[in-house]
């Protein structure tokens, strides 16, 4: 995704797609385990989120056994 595709002038890109695929997990399953609605996770996955709660990020990292830097990165 190019930075131009991102909204609100930020360049943060979410990698939930790749992380889920690597673990053979669905978004629905992640939503259930994290305790966040699938709608909100979908917003995050599709780079439409404007902000992420630390609690959400922590829960995602716990479930996917990864670091915040694996979930989010900044596009150059």
């Amino acid at each position: 995704m190019s930075p131009a595709d991102l909204e609100d002038g930020h360049r943060i890109v979410c990698h939930l797609d790749e992380l889920l695929e690597a673990r053979g997990m669905t978004l629905t399953e992640l939503a259930e385990r994290v305790g966040v609605s699938i709608v909100n996770l979908s917003i995050l996955k599709n780079n439409r989120a404007k902000a992420v709660r630390f609690s959400t990020l922590t829960a995602i990292c716990d479930v996917l056994d990864c670091q915040p830097g694996d979930v989010l990165s900044m596009a150059r």
Partner: peptide, 9 residues
């Protein structure tokens, strides 16, 4: 405030 939290996950 509502606009601020819009898009918050």
């Amino acid at each position: 405030l509502e606009e601020d939290v819009e898009g918050l996950v």
